[in-house]
Write a protein that binds this DNA or RNA. Structure first.
Lengths: 196, 196
DNA sequence: CCGCATCCGCTTCGATACTG
DNA sequence: CAGTATCGAAGCGGATGCGG
C-alpha cells in the first residue's frame, strides 16, 4: 500500500514559492485555465489538454483537490456524471492565469502548424485586452463565451454583464498578436461592443 | 558539438500555454522573483534560491536570456562583475509574480521549520496587501526595500515614491498569513506609512 | 464509453565533484 | 567566482489495460 508521499516543495517561506508549490508543476495551471470557464468532466479535460497523459491528469486533479483548489462533484444520481470544478479558492487563481495570459499574448505572433487550438483559450487574454471597457463583460469568440469582471479579472458566470463583446476568432488572433489595436478593430466593426 | 535542442513546449495556440513555455519550468519564476528587485550575480542567485542545483540555474538563465526575459551584463572592465538583470519584457512579468504572491500569501500561515527565509521575499506580497494605498510606495522590511507602482504592480526603482511604508518582519508575517489586518497594524503603529 | 491505474522508455532534476 | 561534467533518482509521455 502506498501512503501519499510528502509532496515536493520549494521549502521557502515566500508567497510566490508557496503558490508555486500548488500550481507550479507541469500542466497544473493549464488545468485551472480549463476549469476557469466552468465544471468539466475528466474526458473533456483530457481532450482539451492535448499532450497530457492520463496518469498525470489524474494525479494533478488529486493534488488540486487536496489543496482546496478543485472539487470533484457528481451530478444527479439518475445520470451520474462526474465533473471537476474550481472551489472559491480556486477561482481566486483566475487573475493569476489572466495576468500570465496578458503577458503571453505577444508570443502568439509565432503560430506553429503543430499547435493545438481551442476557441475558449482566446477568452482570458481578450479580457485583459478589453480591460479598459470596465465593468462586467460577456466575451464571445465563435461558439465560446465567458463573463469577466474586468476590474478584478475574476470570472463571474452568474453576474449580469454590462456589455457583450463579440469577436471573430480571426480578429482575436490579430488583436492578441498585436497586429491590430482594439480601437481599430472596433472602428472596423470587427469587434462588436453591445451594451446590455 | 551540441546544437540546442528544440525546446519543450505545450504546443498550444494559447497565451497561457505560451507564457508557461517560457516561465513554467521548475525554478524559472523564482529566478524572475529574485531579479525583480534588481540585477544579481550568479552566486547571489544561487544563494537566494536554496535547493536549486548549479546546472539547473545555469540552464534556466540561458533559456530566459534566449527568450528575452533576462540579460547578462558585465560591469566596468576594471572590475569585471557579471550580473543578470531583467529586460523590459522581463519586468512586465513582475505583475504576474505579484498576482501569484497575493494568491500564495494565505499559504504562509503554515510555517515549516525547514523553510528558508529571506526578507526581500516579503516585499511583493506586501505590495499586494497595501495596494489600497495607491500611487508609488517604497516598501521597507528589515534591511530590504523596493519601490512599486501599486496600480500596475510594476517594480519601479527609479520613480520617486509617494509614500514610504515600513514594516517589521514579524508584523509582515502576521499580515501575510491573515492573522491581522492592515488597518489594525497601522493603528497599532506597527506599520508606518510616511508620505514623502 | 468513462474514469482512471499500470507499465515502460525517455527526459529532467538534484547532489556532488570538478575546472578555467 | 561562475559555471561544466557526471550520475542516480524522480518525473513525464505514450500506450495499454480494465472495472463500472
Amino acid at each position: 500500500m502506498v501512503v501519499g508521499m510528502p509532496r515536493r516543495s520549494y521549502a521557502q517561506y515566500d508567497a510566490v514559492a508557496r503558490g508555486l508549490d500548488v500550481i507550479g508543476e507541469r500542466w497544473t495551471l493549464l488545468i485551472v485555465r480549463e476549469l476557469a470557464f466552468g465544471p468539466r468532466r475528466y474526458t473533456d479535460l483530457h481532450a482539451d489538454l492535448p499532450g497530457i497523459s492520463t496518469d498525470v491528469l489524474a494525479a494533478r486533479l488529486k493534488e488540486l483537490e487536496a489543496d482546496g483548489v478543485v472539487e470533484r462533484r457528481t451530478f444527479a444520481p439518475a445520470a451520474p456524471v462526474r465533473v471537476y470544478d474550481l472551489t472559491d479558492r480556486g477561482r481566486e487563481l483566475v487573475p493569476v492565469v489572466a495576468a500570465l495570459a496578458a503577458w503571453g499574448s505577444p508570443l502568439l505572433a509565432a503560430h506553429q502548424e503543430t499547435d493545438a487550438v481551442r476557441h475558449h483559450w482566446y477568452l482570458l487574454p481578450l479580457a485583459a485586452l478589453v480591460r479598459e471597457l470596465g465593468g462586467v463583460v460577456e466575451l464571445r469568440v465563435e461558439g465560446s463565451s465567458c463573463r469577466v469582471d474586468l476590474e478584478s479579472m475574476a470570472v463571474v458566470p452568474e453576474a449580469e454583464p454590462d456589455a457583450v463583446v463579440t469577436i471573430a476568432a480571426k480578429i482575436a488572433d490579430e488583436l492578441l498578436a498585436g497586429r491590430t489595436t482594439l480601437a481599430t478593430a472596433i472602428d472596423d466593426g470587427h469587434v462588436i461592443v453591445q451594451d446590455s
